[in-house]
Design a protein around this nucleic acid. Structure first.
Length: 511
RNA sequence: GGCGGCGUAGCUCAGCGGUAGAGCAGGGGAAUCAUAAUCCCUUGGUCGGGGGUUCAAAUCCCUCCGCCGCUACCA
C-alpha cells in the first residue's frame, strides 16, 4: 500500500512582495516534503497564491492595472520565489484559475444544500476611508463626541445583505473534534488560544461581500462574491482534484499538514475544518502555526525599510546556508530574530568548520592515501567504530520522530551531535598517524568516516539539497542510492571517488 | 478586564520534584589530516522578587514585578 503525504503552505496573498516570512514557510514545507520522499512516501506538496479580495483590487488600481494583470505579475513573483528557495512543490495553485472557481462554486452549493448557509444582513461600524469594519470595542471617541475608527477615520453604521455560514452551530462539534484530535493544532500555545476562543462562543460567519467585485461570484447571486477566506482555504481541495473524486490526486485528501503562520491559525484550525465537515468532507489531519521573524531585533515593516527579500539573502549567502539557518536558529513555532551576525556564525562554525571541514579532511586522506577509492569496512571494528557507526545509524529513526513534531532545530541538533562525535573520532583515531604505523587500520577508520558522512549527508539532504548532493557525489554515492532505505546497503569497497572539494566555504566579510 | 504563556550562565535556549545543562562567546592545553578548521580541559548562574507545600523545588501552590500572545471576519 502506498504511503501518501499531502503538505501545503498557505497560498500567499498577492497584495505585497514576497518576504522572509513567506520563504520560511515554503522552506519548512519543502524540507518535510523532501524528507517524506526520502522515507519512501508518495508526496504531494502544494503552494500557490491567494488573489482575490478588496485589498488586491485596490493594490491593482494603485498600480494602474486591472486585477488580473496585477495578480498575474505578483503571482509570477511568488512562483519565482518558491523556485529560488529550492521548493520542490508538485503544484502551484492560483485562486483565479478556472479549476478553483469551479471547486469553490461546488463547495458553496454543497453547503447551501446542507443548510449551512443562509442569506442575512451584515451590519457594523464601517469606515469608508479605511474600507473596513470595526468592532464597537475598537472605536475611539472623537473630539465632538462622535465615534472614530482607531485610524481616526469617521465611521457609520452600515447594513448590507450577506450570506452567512452557520458557524455558531458548530461550536460543540468543533470542541469535540479538538478533544478527539489533541494534536490537530500545534504548537500547544496556539491550541490553547483557539480553544478559549471557541469556548467563548461562536457567531455565524459572514461569507460573502457585495461591496466589491474582485472575487468568485456566489452561485445564483452574482451581486455577491465569496468571502476571501472561504475562497482561499478551498484551494487545498481544489488542488487535490475536488470535486472530481475520481481524480488520482483526491487520494491525497485529507491533507496531512497545513503549515501556516501564527496569524492565520484560526482560519485554518477553526473555519476550515468547520467548512469541510459542514460540506461532508474530511478535515485536514494537522495544522501547525509557526512564528514570526524580526530582523536585527526589529519588527519587519515597510516604514523601517527592513523587509528582506529572501532572494537578496541567497545572492549574498547562498541558498543552503539560508535554509539551514532559518530552521536551525529558532525552535519551529517560536518567534525568532534574523541577524546577519547569527547567520554568519552558524555558516562558519557549523557548516564550514564542523561539517564541511570534517568531510574535507576525511576525503582528502582517502584521496591521498587510499588511491582515491572507498576503503573496505573494518574486518574487526573497535568499540569506537561501533559507537560512532551505531549512533549515526540511529539518525533516520530519531529524525523521523523529531520531524513528525516539526522540531526542525532539534533534528539538526541531533545531526550535529554526530558531526561533533565524528570530529572527535577522527582526532582520537588520528588516521594521519596510522598511515605510518598501521595502514590497514587507517583505511578502516577512513571507511567508518565515509559511511558516517554518507548517513549525515543523506539525512541532511532535505534541508540542504544542493550542498548534500555535492557531498554525496564526493562520497561516491550514486543518485539511485540516496534515500533512507539505501543506507542499509553499504557501498562496495573500491568505488572510485572524485577529488574532494569544499562544500561549505567559510564566509568572509567583504572588506 | 478575561484566558494563556514567558522570565535559568555574557548571548540564544533545554531541563519542569531528587543537591544546575547545551551551543555560541571567554580562558588554558594538545594535535597538525583539513576550509588556521579540529580535539581535550576549563571560567561563568543564590534558575525575576517574596511566601508556602515537601525528607527534597527552576521543577508544585500563592503573591508581587517585568515582558508577550489570544480576545471574530484584518496574509
Amino acid at each position: 500500500m502506498t504511503k501518501r503525504y499531502y503538505i501545503t503552505t498557505p497560498i500567499y496573498y498577492v497584495n505585497g512582495a514576497p518576504h522572509i516570512g513567506h520563504a520560511y514557510t515554503t522552506i519548512a514545507a519543502d524540507v518535510l516534503a523532501r524528507w517524506k520522499r526520502l522515507a519512501g512516501y508518495d508526496v504531494f506538496f502544494l503552494t500557490g497564491t491567494d488573489e482575490h479580495g478588496q485589498k488586491v483590487e485596490k493594490a491593482a488600481a494603485e498600480a494602474g492595472l486591472d486585477p488580473q494583470s496585477f495578480t498575474d505579475r505578483v503571482a509570477a513573483d511568488f512562483r519565482d520565489m518558491a523556485a529560488r528557495m529550492g521548493a520542490s512543490n508538485d503544484d502551484f495553485i492560483r485562486t483565479t484559475e478556472p479549476r478553483h472557481r469551479h471547486a469553490c462554486s461546488v463547495l458553496w452549493q454543497r453547503l447551501v444544500e446542507r443548510g449551512e448557509i443562509y442569506l442575512g444582513e451584515y451590519q457594523g461600524w464601517y469606515a469608508v476611508r479605511d474600507e473596513a469594519f470595526y468592532n464597537e470595542s475598537e472605536l475611539v471617541p472623537g473630539p465632538d463626541g462622535t465615534r472614530l475608527a482607531p485610524s481616526g477615520a469617521p465611521v457609520e453604521w452600515v447594513r448590507e445583505p450577506s450570506y452567512f455560514f452557520r458557524l455558531s452551530a458548530w461550536q460543540d462539534r468543533m470542541l469535540a473534534f479538538y478533544a478527539e484530535n489533541p494534536d490537530f493544532i500545534l504548537p500547544l500555545s496556539r491550541r490553547n488560544e483557539l480553544l478559549s476562543f471557541v469556548r467563548t462562543g461562536l457567531s455565524d460567519l459572514s461569507i460573502s461581500r457585495a461591496s466589491f467585485r474582485w472575487g468568485i461570484p456566489v452561485p445564483g447571486d452574482p451581486a455577491h462574491v465569496m468571502y476571501v477566506w472561504l475562497d482561499a482555504l478551498a484551494n487545498y481541495i481544489t488542488a487535490a482534484g475536488f470535486p472530481d473524486e475520481a481524480d488520482p490526486r483526491w487520494a491525497f485528501w485529507p491533507a496531512d499538514l497545513h503549515l501556516v503562520g501564527k496569524e492565520i491559525a484560526r482560519f485554518h484550525a477553526l473555519y476550515w475544518p468547520a467548512f469541510l465537515m459542514a460540506a461532508g468532507l474530511a478535515p485536514p489531519k494537522r495544522v501547525f502555526a509557526h512564528g514570526w521573524w524580526t530582523v536585527e531585533g526589529e519588527k519587519m515593516s515597510k516604514s523601517l525599510g527592513n523587509v528582506i527579500d529572501p532572494r537578496d539573502l541567497l545572492a549574498r549567502f547562498g541558498l543552503d546556508p539560508v535554509r539551514y539557518f532559518l530552521l536551525r536558529e529558532v525552535p519551529f513555532g517560536n518567534d525568532g530574530d534574523f541577524s546577519r551576525r547569527a547567520l554568519i556564525t552558524r555558516m562558519n562554525v557549523e557548516l564550514a568548520n564542523d561539517l564541511g571541514n570534517l568531510a574535507q579532511r576525511s576525503l582528502s586522506l582517502i584521496a591521498r592515501h587510499c588511491a582515491a577509492t572507498l576503503p573496505a569496512l573494518p574486518k574487526s571494528p573497535t568499540d569506537a567504530d561501533n559507537t560512532l557507526l551505531s549512533a549515526a545509524a540511529a539518525l533516520p529513526r530519531d529524525l523521523a520522530g523529531a520531524l513528525d513534531r516539526l522540531a526542525f532545530s532539534e533534528a539538526l541538533d541531533e545531526i550535529w551531535k554526530i558531526v561533533r562525535a565524528a570530529n572527535a573520532y577522527i582526532d582520537h583515531q588520528a588516521p594521519w598517524a596510522l598511515r605510518r604505523t598501521d595502514p590497514p587500520r587507517m583505511a578502516a577508520v577512513l571507511r567508518v568516516l565515509a559511511d558516517v558522512l554518507r548517513i549525515i549527508a543523506t539525512v541532511l539532504s532535505p534541508f540542504m539539497p544542493e550542498s548534500m548532493a555535492r557531498m554525496l557525489d564526493q562520497l561516491g554515492v550514486p543518485p539511485s542510492a540516496r534515500d533512507l532505505a539505501a543506507l542499509a546497503v553499504p557501498l562496495p569497497a573500491g568505488t572510485p571517488l572524485p577529488p574532494p572539494q569544499a562544500v561549505f566555504p567559510r564566509f568572509a566579510e567583504p572588506a
